[in-house]
Design a protein around this nucleic acid. Structure first.
Length: 454
RNA sequence: GCGGUUGUAGCUCAGUUGGUUAGAGUACCGGAUUGUGGUUCCGUGGGUCGUCGGUUCGAAUCCGACCUGCCGCCCCA
């Protein structure tokens, strides 16, 4: 028989019990905060029709979609010799389904499809895996979980403020110091307008986004390459000097720059209002206006968010924004929404790097009953039932093996207590409780043991 | 999708200009200790040297392709 070398696809991972306990801690923490803010859960299928997903994430996004080969004779009616047949065209003929790329687009599809069953404004959270055919790197996987909260059917900026508050609560709960960057697409549109290149918003954003990384000169060079004229770039000068300035100073400079742009002024007004709501919240999170923040997802129309950990080298651990027309593609107009997505794996990596996982989540099992022999086993089992009935997580070693081996099992699983009962204890109607940390042990009644373990 | 880099025991890594039977630490298993783990001592087992092909009398070592991890670009949580 051929032995198959065990392996998993590129960019995917297995999770051990220790890792899952930690992941569940992340999910539980986020879920409880979502609940508190009245977001209710939904789930959608792993796969969507490709027509739902294509064209929503820009050119780059389409390339990163995992496509699923049709079942049955998927070659039927496909002319492979057609010289007009491009890879993309072929893909749409062979695949009608794809794995979801994020949770926002499936959510928009869900909202339109179930519009008559939902009460608006509709608040939902969703914690499910997404898939991207990206090249894996550190903090970058092909399968990863997103934890999304969205509110749709309301244009109020209270919602933006609420998402900022939720973000603050989540990262405070984790003990991660973060900076939350905020921007507004309308400001970016305004900038494009006043420099006389209203059609160039996308190229402007792509170039601006790199200011941090490659510097002003390289950004200007890239803008010219992308067809933005020199006099237009000259007008951008003031915003290259934003770094280090306060949010109020930045808004002041923007007001001057965008004085002649209606949409630009609207963007400033929105961001000002959001910051005003947030003032009363007493946040630990640093909020920073960053007009280089564009984000590739081309459905954003208003606020844009991004969160980075201050003390860890990691890409953004959270991102989101407002989308006015996402449901329009599926036939439902005037349904503005705003949402934010927390990346579970990146939060995991940051917590791990900074050693911020609580020690208590390592192992919920409090005690191991030692299995001496067939006769003692029944006595141990009755003790085990009582302990479990009291709500304490415990187990018995299932086989009659040497005590040393059973002890070492408890040790390697970090089980804090071992409970032993042989002939002596059985006769006295007691159990011997051993504290694995101190090594101390004493003979006690079951009630006393339960009391100690609680 | 483009460029660079990496791979030897479950894990962390040695391995000389290409030369006999590929080593160590750790973990595992067994014993010292048949009612006591974590510390100590002794011993056993464990390898298609990432995969396939090429060069050579001879390849873990040199060459090629592919796979995987990582880094940069692109993009993003």
């Amino acid at each position: 028989m051929n032995i198959v070398k065990p392996s998993i696809p590129k960019g995917t991972r297995d999770f051990t019990p220790t890792e899952m306990m930690r992941r569940n801690y992340i999910f539980d923490t986020i879920r409880s905060i979502f609940y508190k803010h009245a977001y209710l859960p939904i789930e959608t299928p792993s796969m969507e029709n490709l027509s739902t997903l294509m064209g929503k994430y820009g050119e780059e996004g389409d390339r990163l979609l995992f496509k699923i080969l049709n079942s049955g004779d998927f070659t039927q009616g496909v002319n492979f010799n057609d010289p007009e047949m491009s890879v993309n065209k072929l893909a749409t003929k062979l695949c009608e389904k794809g794995l979801r790329y994020d949770l926002t687009v499936p959510f928009a599809r869900f909202v339109v499809q179930h519009q008559n069953e939902l009460t608006f404004p509709f608040k939902r959270y969703q914690m499910q895996p997404v898939w991207r055919a990206d090249r894996p790197q550190k903090g970058r996987y092909r399968e990863f979980y997103q934890c999304d909260a969205d509110i749709i059917g309301s244009i109020s900026l209270i919602n933006e403020a609420e998402l900022i508050e939720i973000t603050d609560e989540i990262f405070s709960a984790f003990g991660i110091a973060v900076v939350m960057k905020i921007n507004n697409r309308k400001i970016l549109s305004g900038i494009a307008e006043v420099i006389g290149e209203p059609e160039q918003v996308t190229n402007l954003c792509i170039a601006m986004d790199k200011l941090d990384k490659i510097g002003q000169e390289a950004v200007c060079a890239e803008m010219m390459e992308r067809g933005i004229c020199e006099s237009a770039i000259e007008k951008l000068k003031p915003i290259f000097e934003f770094s280090g300035k306060s949010n109020d100073e930045k808004l002041g400079l923007l007001s001057n720059l965008l004085a002649d742009s209606e949409i630009g002024k609207k963007g400033i007004e929105e961001i000002t209002t959001v910051l005003d709501y947030v003032k009363d919240m007493d946040l630990a999170t640093e909020l920073e206006i960053d007009i280089t923040l564009a984000r590739g997802l081309n459905y954003y129309t208003g606020a844009i968010f991004e969160v980075k950990a201050k003390d860890a080298a990691m890409g953004s651990i959270s991102g989101g924004g407002r989308y006015d027309n996402l449901t329009g593609i599926f036939g439902l107009k005037n349904m503005s929404g705003v949402g934010i997505s927390y990346g579970a794996e990146r939060i995991y990596d940051v917590l791990n790097e900074l050693n911020l996982f609580p020690a208590a989540i390592l192992n919920p099992v409090k005690a191991l009953f030692i299995n001496f022999s067939a006769e003692d086993e029944r006595y141990a089992l009755s003790g085990l039932r009582a302990v479990r009935k009291a709500g304490i997580s415990a187990e018995i070693y299932p086989d009659h093996v040497k005590i040393g081996k059973q002890m070492s099992y408890a040790n390697s699983k970090s089980i804090p207590f071992v409970i032993m009962a042989g002939e002596n204890e059985r006769n006295n109607n007691t159990y011997t409780l051993k504290d694995m940390t101190t090594g101390e042990q004493c003979e006690l009644t079951l009630d006393n043991i339960i009391e100690k373990l609680q």
